[in-house]
Amino acid sequence: MKKFWRCFVCNDIHYGVKPPELCPTCRVLNAYVEISAGEARRMMGLPAEGGFSREKFGEAIEAFAAQNEFRVNPDSERVNTLLDGLAANEEKHGLRYCPCRLISKDFAEDSKLVCPCNFLVHETYKGVEQGECWCGLFVRRT
């Protein structure tokens, strides 16, 4: 069954049974995370329809992290807090914006805040041995 996938680095959208191993645009390996049809539509500038359950998103980020050098934070309390914020932002603003950063109301700029975002460049992650994304949803495997 075909699904929607989004590159967490450059936000390219792919529709297919499997995501590309290598992103054709930014050339990052294992960069695609499964997203909802609604998110895909919103990222392409279309009205959203078809949400993504919290449970489904949890599964998607686990599968995404499993093939990478990072994992979902083992601190389940922190993860639950963040999922509350992501769900609230999706409901109110149409996309799962990071609960620890505020949107500027510039869509192109704000698309960089949709979880999972390109946290590989965050100063809290890049080159940090026990690095994590800004909000702490993803942590480097140690």
């Binding site: 963040l82 914020g85 609960p99 620890c100 702490g136």
Partner: peptide, 8 residues
């Protein structure tokens, strides 16, 4: 932010 762990 209410759901920001750093803020808490």
């Amino acid at each position: 932010a209410r759901e920001c762990p750093h803020c808490r």
